[in-house]
C-alpha cells in the first residue's frame, strides 16, 4: 500500500532542497541556465518581482504555457506561484503537475483574510513569513516549507535579514520560557500552542525555512545562510544582473560554502553589476509586498 501527499513526503521534498538555490525564471532558456548553474529548483513566472513592481496592476498566476515550457526544459523540480487565497489557481498548478506551489505575496492577493487550506492538496506549498506567528499559522494551514518574505524585487537584503533574525530570536525566546508561560506567548503571537510546544522542544521549526526577498549577490546568499537559512530563493537578482550565468553559479557556490570567505571573495570577482536595487524608505506602505498577508 502506498500513500501520496503525506506530510512526510511533502516536507521531505523541501528537505532535499536544503543548502541549495531556487531561481526565478521566465522561460525555458533561463531555466536551462539555472539548471546548468546548479539550481536545486526553478520558480516559473511570467515576470520576476522587479518587473512585477515596475509593471504595477494586478499580478496573477503565470500563463500555464510558460510553466509548461519550463517543466519541459529541465529535470529539476519546478515551482510556480499562486495568489494568496486563490484556491483555483493552486488547483490548476497542481493539476499541471508543478512540484511545489508558492502561495505568494509577490502576486496580488485574491483573499485579504484567508490563506489556502494547503493540507488538502497533494502538491506541497511554500509560504512567506516575517515572524513566528506567521510561520506557525502557515505551517498549521499545511505549508511544507517556509521562506522569509523579505521585500521582493528590491535587491535589498535588509528585510530578509530582519525576518530571519526575528524568527530565530523568537525561537530562542520561546525556548527560554517556562511551560506555563507558553500559552500567553501563543496568544500574543496568534500562534498555535501545540506547534509552539514542539518548536520549543526541538529548538527549530518543523519545516525547512529558506531566505527570500532581496538577495542580489553571492555575499547576500552567504549572509542569509550564516543567519540560519536552510537555503535561498533568488528572484530578480540573477536575471536582472549583467551576467546571469556567472551570477547564478557564484550564488550557488556561496550558498554551499557560506563560511568560506576566501572562496566567496574569489567568486565575487569580476561578476559585473548586480541588479540596481531600491532603498526601503522610497517604498510607500502599499508598495511593500511583505505587508500583503499575515
Amino acid at each position: 500500500m502506498s500513500q501520496t501527499g503525506t506530510e512526510r513526503v511533502k516536507r521531505g521534498m523541501a528537505e532535499m532542497q536544503k543548502g541549495g538555490v531556487i531561481m526565478d525564471v521566465v522561460n525555458a532558456e533561463q531555466a536551462k541556465i539555472a539548471e546548468e548553474a546548479g539550481a536545486v529548483a526553478v520558480m516559473a513566472l511570467e515576470r520576476v518581482p522587479a518587473d512585477i513592481r515596475a509593471a504595477g496592476g494586478v499580478a496573477r498566476m503565470a500563463d500555464p504555457t510558460i510553466v509548461e515550457e519550463v517543466m519541459n526544459a529541465v529535470s529539476i523540480p519546478v515551482m510556480a506561484k499562486a495568489r494568496i487565497g486563490h484556491i483555483a489557481e493552486a488547483r490548476v498548478l497542481e493539476a499541471m503537475g508543478v512540484d511545489y506551489i508558492d502561495e505568494s505575496e509577490v502576486l496580488t492577493p485574491a483573499d485579504e483574510i484567508y490563506h489556502i487550506k494547503k493540507d488538502d492538496y497533494t502538491v506541497p506549498f511554500v509560504c512567506g513569513c516575517r515572524n513566528i506567528g506567521e510561520a506557525t499559522r502557515r505551517i498549521r494551514e499545511g505549508a511544507s516549507m517556509l521562506r522569509t518574505k523579505g521585500e521582493p524585487g528590491t535587491g535589498n537584503i535588509v528585510e530578509a535579514v530582519r525576518h530571519m533574525r526575528q524568527i530565530q530570536s523568537e525561537i530562542r525566546h520561546l525556548q527560554s520560557l517556562a511551560e506555563d508561560e507558553v500559552m500567553v506567548f501563543a496568544k500574543e503571537n496568534g500562534a498555535p500552542f501545540d506547534l509552539l510546544m514542539e518548536i520549543r522542544e526541538e529548538g527549530r521549526l518543523p519545516v525547512v525555512n529558506f531566505a527570500a526577498g532581496g538577495i542580489a549577490t553571492p555575499a547576500d546568499a552567504a549572509l542569509m545562510m550564516q543567519l540560519g537559512a536552510d537555503g535561498v530563493f533568488v528572484g530578480s537578482g540573477i536575471f536582472k544582473s549583467n551576467n546571469p550565468a556567472q551570477f547564478a553559479r557564484a550564488i550557488v557556490e556561496a550558498t554551499t560554502h557560506y563560511d568560506d570567505y576566501k572562496l566567496i571573495g574569489e567568486l565575487s570577482k569580476g561578476l559585473g553589476t548586480a541588479m540596481k536595487g531600491m532603498e526601503m524608505s522610497t517604498l510607500t506602505s502599499d508598495q511593500r509586498m511583505q505587508e500583503r498577508s499575515q
Binding site: 500500500m1 512526510r8 513526503v9 523540480p77 502538491v123 506541497p124
Partner: peptide, 23 residues
Amino acid sequence: RQRESFEADLDIDGVADQFTAVF
C-alpha cells in the same frame, strides 16, 4: 513528479521487514 511521490512499507532482504520507505 512530486505529485506522485509517496511512502510505502517494504521488506529489505536480510535487513528489515516492514520498513517505511519515503520516495
